[in-house]
Design a protein around this nucleic acid. Sequence first.
DNA 1: GAGTGGTCTAGACCACGTT
DNA 2: ACGTGGTCTAGACCACTCC
Lengths: 221, 221
Amino acid sequence: MRAEVLRRIHARDWAPGALIPTEEALAQEFGCARATVNRALRELAETGVLERRRKAGTRVALSPPRRATLDIPVTRLEVEGRGQAYGFHLLEQRLREAPAPVTSRLGLAPGLELLQLKTLHLADGRPFLLEDRWLNPAVLPDPAPDFAAISANEWLVGHVPYTTGDIAFSAASASAEEAEVLGLAEGAALFIVERSTWERDLPVTTVRLAYAPGYRLRTVV
Amino acid sequence: MRAEVLRRIHARDWAPGALIPTEEALAQEFGCARATVNRALRELAETGVLERRRKAGTRVALSPPRRATLDIPVTRLEVEGRGQAYGFHLLEQRLREAPAPVTSRLGLAPGLELLQLKTLHLADGRPFLLEDRWLNPAVLPDPAPDFAAISANEWLVGHVPYTTGDIAFSAASASAEEAEVLGLAEGAALFIVERSTWERDLPVTTVRLAYAPGYRLRTVV
DNA sequence: GAGTGGTCTAGACCACGTT
DNA sequence: ACGTGGTCTAGACCACTCC
């Protein structure tokens, strides 16, 4: 059913932009229930192949289905998945007034004190990723966990999961500090991931991950 | 229904890793049909919040739902969406033997002749993105379209849509050639997107996009 | 107003994986 | 073997939105 609809789109039986038959008509043609057609078409709409509007009907999308699902890796698992040994060093940990860009990203009042953690993640003992994280102390238990023993990332995964958030990907040249920590020449091209997360409306953390050269994030469309 | 399940997960009524009741039990508890429960749980499993296995039951995921859907932008629309004027220059177009990395990415025989297109995309007249594309001539009509008039990207969208493919994101330092074309210093950090696409099993194109500094790709989890 | 998709019910059978 | 989720049917009502 789903496959047949896709075939017709590929075969140009239904051209991009064209209206396709209603669910009821397709159900009759395929000899199946409307719910089955509905599910097939709904799933295709979710991947971006079709566009559906009540009353207006279902159209083959004009712009192509450029929607990919991206699995955001957990650093330790990602490193171990390559067959490398994972390790990390907590470089710095201090409670301090967060700079304006950080508080504004999280929607917090300026000048609030957040816990800043700088962590270097290692693969087979070599620098893999430099993490600069700001944590909302409100989410931490008392006493706070020992982030030298468990990485902040893993602690959060186990204790504050099921968050919402946004992610941005970009590239940046390594600063002097980043270059030194990662063992690179200053100005080397780093792959940057910035994430901010909330649990319901409570800001949890914002983090900047700077990956050593050679890192690639992959997905399938 | 979906919301209530999410609430229980957030509230730790159901802890990470814990087994939740069967669909039938939940249907009774909520006073709704099993199909309704099934849909809610299936959708949550798709976002990564739950893990489902036949016979084993449904568990709250241990690793958090780090699955993002990424909308791959069409360059012209992305530029225009920022309120900037879009333009492009076809820098180079030639049929030549593709190097091994290119043919292997597409699963083609080495030494096959492909159409190489180098295109500079502009936003408000300033370099925005350098595109290095290899096109399978087998997908082109005779005569071939004029890629100086319509960008290869847009032609493909209109004439060979509904492809499958893979995407990789990374960072790279600008080569001398890239730096000159993009108007940057050599070694500047570029955000790199590499895409290969197929229509069914027919290799269509592989492309490397090098974005000028400042570019950010965003998404929401 | 009327036609479309969105969602639900109640029931059934099947596929798979654990046991 | 058995229990779980996966998927289907046939029918119903509702919500939206285009005309």
